[in-house]
Design a protein around this nucleic acid. Structure first.
Lengths: 332, 332
DNA sequence: ATTAGCACTCGAAAGGGAAGAGTGCTAACA
DNA sequence: TGTTAGCACTCTTCCCTTTCGAGTGCTAAT
């Protein structure tokens, strides 16, 4: 009970909590002295910490861990919160990316933390159509459309050795052969399966394939969105520019963040402070939840904030949001 | 001479400059007392300021203005800087967006300021091809390709009243009629010119047009890139979280920034502090330069930093970069 | 098991020099 | 008339001390 009060209070105030304050809390009918004894025990067990020898207590990481594992009460979201979330899905057009972007924005707005989302993994989608549109004698744009409506595109120069009509033929054959195969297999199968077939139609097959491949796959697909980075500045624990800088330098490393979010089993996961394994994230908590299409995992939505997060509210929000995303995508 | 020394020194150190320090400078052969007299005059004329009654001097905005207007020496860029810039254009593929993105990154890396770029204005480009690819009975993706290789795409739901074949017909007619017209005219001409023609082919013309239009134009084209926001944190003038927050809240307002950059005549423009008209930018300077294709203005590249910017180096960098961009685009 | 009482600790805030960088002004000098 | 030495004065920064109060741990009593 005391641990719960301390964590709840600390989440609100960001200040160490003293025995007297706890004894005044509703539902607590012990004197400060009793509470001090219990607090000393909780500290010995590792659930609490002091900022200095005569300060009140703050939760340790172990304390937070216990809190999120055993003391998380279901939080009743306000009407307003619920409305703002459902507004995300109130859309005229079927557009995955739009929903993904709106989701990440609403999550950071509602929590005042930084929110990150990993969009549908393009390579898991299947090939719907491949196209090359020639812009001039030497340049063209390649467009790849997946069955999930994702579009990747890329301009490139046409090398002199390859004629426009050859590229066109190549594209036609690829479309015919590879319709509906997973994009992720496109690369390897392009090389193995159709090299021979093409030889008869096209001069310089390998070069053409190489170019097409470069045009289609050389770029990171942009399915990574972030929102509310500046929200961090409002948190009292980051009132020091040094800290802000070290945190921002981590958040800006897109690859690192993608890895952090990608490696996730289905469901919701909370990582507190050092559990994140990254030095610069020692003072941060990361909450991530997956969303899916017909049960098949599509991506991850995550929230990054101080360890002193409003866990129960945040968990409710992120759960509602990820469920709604899954539902909407599946409906579509 | 004294004004120049003060500004040069202040750009380096961010500290008020005293008379003694100036007298020790090479090329100055006057005693501190003489320099104090001159500094008092410069202050009366409005070119210098004091932070408190017995402090050294710092440049005023009028001082900076005079400096950039009359005292900017051509800066010799280091080999390394030049190499890093030319590396941006050393590309296998013709890809405007790629170059634009690389440019904004290199500029913020080289300067440690925040860099923003406005990509080619999509609406000024011409229609190359319009396409609708149906994903399922009720959803499709519309793709618009311009003569400059820009691709806009958007998923949408097909309303029950419109058949897939009608949409296809519509697209065919649009492609035929409007090939090579400026995108910016597409909207109005779609309504006016072909409503009648289509009536005979398609039921429900207006609804179909409305949907197509929504699919193509409802989204802001993303030709806005920013890089190096966190660089601001390294500047000593922003060691206060309050300031950082107010500045970030401005930079994050994309529309506002686009407006700031869009309204630019050809060439390079420097706006110092209050000249920016925006409260939150009082302590910032904005340097913007246009780049073009065959003399036709394409976009703007800009740099945002403290008023105490290394103007001569930065101006050289941004000039070199924007010229290279223009040259590369024109070559392509 | 709980509590009152009390000595003790520590941080935050306020106050007070001392040091030092810099100024403006005056008077002297070339 | 332009330049400079000298000097009193101003203001910031740094450091030390004091005071205040919130909070603790421990002991003894209930």
């Amino acid at each position: 009970m005391i641990l719960q009060v301390i964590i709840d209070e600390f989440i609100q105030s960001a200040q160490p909590i003293g025995s007297r304050a706890i004894s005044k809390k509703e539902g607590i009918s012990y004197s400060p002295a009793t509470i001090r004894n219990e607090m000393a025990d909780l500290e010995e067990l590792g659930y609490l910490e002091k900022t200095h020898s005569s300060s009140g207590r703050i939760p340790s990481e172990k304390g937070y861990r216990f809190y999120v594992d055993h003391m998380l009460l279901p939080f009743h979201l306000s009407e307003k919160d619920q409305k703002l979330i459902s507004a995300v899905f109130d859309y005229e057009y079927v557009d995955f990316e739009q929903v993904v972007q709106k989701s990440v924005e609403v999550l950071s707005d509602l929590t005042n933390y930084t929110s990150i989302i990993l969009g549908p993994e393009v390579f898991e989608a299947r090939l719907k159509q491949l196209q090359i549109i020639q812009l001039s004698k030497t340049s063209a744009v390649a467009i790849l459309v997946t069955n999930k409506g994702h579009v990747e595109h890329r301009s490139f120069t046409i090398p002199a050795e390859i004629s426009g009509s050859d590229l066109e033929k190549l594209v036609n054959i690829l479309n015919e052969k590879f319709y509906n195969i997973p994009i992720i297999q496109l690369h390897s199968r392009m090389q193995v399966e159709i090299g021979n077939i093409l030889n008869s139609y096209i001069t310089n097959v390998n070069l053409a394939l190489k170019y097409l491949h470069g045009a289609l796959f050389s770029q990171q697909p942009d399915n990574y969105y972030m929102s509310g980075m500046t929200n961090m500045l409002l948190q009292p624990e980051f009132n020091d520019v040094e800290k802000v800088h070290s945190i921002y330098s981590i958040i800006e490393k897109e690859d690192l963040m993608i890895n952090l979010l990608r490696a996730t089993e289905q469901g919701l996961k909370i990582s507190i402070g050092q559990e994140n394994k990254i030095d610069e994230m020692q003072d941060l908590s990361l909450i991530k939840a997956t969303y899916s299409l017909s049960g098949e995992q599509l991506g991850t939505i995550a929230l990054l904030g101080p360890k002193r997060m409003d866990y129960s509210r945040v968990v409710s929000l992120i759960n509602l949001l990820s469920n709604q995303m899954s539902k909407t995508f599946t409906d579509w």
